[in-house]
Design a protein around this nucleic acid. Structure first.
Lengths: 218, 218
DNA sequence: GCTTGCGGCAAGTATGTACTTGCATTAACC
DNA sequence: GGTTAATGCAAGTACATACTTGCCGCAAGC
């Protein structure tokens, strides 16, 4: 534990920043939260800005563990699981994300940090939609245009983002609990891209890979 | 113009707050932005907190002019127009909304102010959805549950909110221009609640009020 | 055993911020 | 024309913040 103090200070900086923002994250508060002397903070990181910059860079490096299967088998279930992981992750980070979004104009680094996670998630969804289309889940007919399919992915991510960010401060907007809401988001998304199959259709569609299809409870 | 100065200071406070947040909105900056002496600010409002509190209360009082028709005639067109109004309004206020969301934990008033607009919009959409159902646009069959219809409204508003708030700082997430994206959101929402009628169906459905139906371009 | 480096502690510096006070100016109102 | 209220200006107070400096204790490495 050679750099125990550095890590403690960095984590404390993240917590204080999440609560009070850049200006409110004073060196005194961070040192107190970390349980170290304020001078140690300057000796280790040079300045408050350097410390917060480093904290943000570390913050962008968090890797997400949610992935999609190589080929879609049950889109509703797979999307729901994936969306749930990202929603809970977002709820856990919502305080810090809010601060970063408000600091984005004054500190461009904050915008990059806040953008990193959602952008990666968005790319994953787009990739998954391509897989859905390649495997015949998304209607190829002119009924739903490709541009609309891309917008549907943006809409799904936007809804999940807004839900995770606002549910605590806009209670009147969210009447139903999280799991039901997320499932509804996924179903509307799939219906929007023409990929929500009723059991009859789904059986017909998955007949060729019936051996690998997982059972779908409920 | 008896209270010219008060209004100038209040508007300046809103601009400075939108850029720098509560802590960054110093009395010096606000006075400079308003073109008045810093002392005038204290003589008029007593303290910085009183001024910003008043600014927030005034900010919550803005009325929205977008309304839905009494009875739906062309849901896609009506929803698109309404969503467009709210999206542009949100884009105009996004800086101040971001600050309010980040200040919400420390200043509950900020949360109320930021919540007011979206909550009212949400109520309007829900009302419109009820009208859609009453007029037979939304499928009454068990295909789409009422809970899912409510979640669809939340999803639409969430997507519009996320789009307006994030489009400038997450460019990779939004690949298509605003009008196309909003139209896609509306179409996916309507398809999600079973109310997106192809021209053939729509003609059959609007036959009873054909005299009042507006022509739909494109 | 001695050095080296790291951290705590106390004090200090420079700057910014909220807010006050006293005085001069100006414009409106009777 | 004189009073009154609002404003500008200069200065000052009290406090917080970022950051520095010097000294001391301590633990590891040679």
């Amino acid at each position: 534990m050679i750099d125990d103090h550095r890590q403690r200070i960095l984590h404390a900086a993240a917590r204080v920043y999440a609560q009070h923002g850049w200006r409110g994250a004073t060196t005194r508060r961070i040192a107190e939260e970390a349980g170290v002397n304020e001078v140690t903070l300057f000796r280790q990181f040079g300045s408050k800005d350097a410390l917060l910059d480093l904290m943000m860079r570390e913050c962008s490096r968090v890797e997400q563990d949610a992935t999609f299967p190589l080929e879609p088998v049950d889109p509703e279930q797979e999307l729901l699981a994936w969306v749930t992981v990202h929603h809970t992750a977002l709820v856990g980070m919502r305080a810090i994300v809010r601060q970063m979004m408000s600091d984005a104009e004054e500190r461009p680094d904050a915008a990059n940090c806040a953008t990193h996670g959602p952008s990666a998630a968005m790319a994953q969804v787009r990739e998954y939609v391509v897989k859905l289309r390649r495997h015949g889940w998304v209607t190829e007919s002119g009924e739903v245009s490709p541009a609309e399919v891309r917008a549907a992915a943006t809409m799904l991510m936007g809804a999940v983002f807004a839900d995770g960010m606002n549910r605590d401060i806009m209670p009147t907007m969210f009447t139903q609990p999280v799991p039901e809401t997320l499932r509804a988001y996924v179903r509307i998304f799939l219906r929007g891209v023409g990929a929500l199959q009723e059991p009859a259709h789904r059986a017909a569609r998955t007949v060729e890979r019936d051996s690998t299809s997982t059972t779908v409870p409920e």
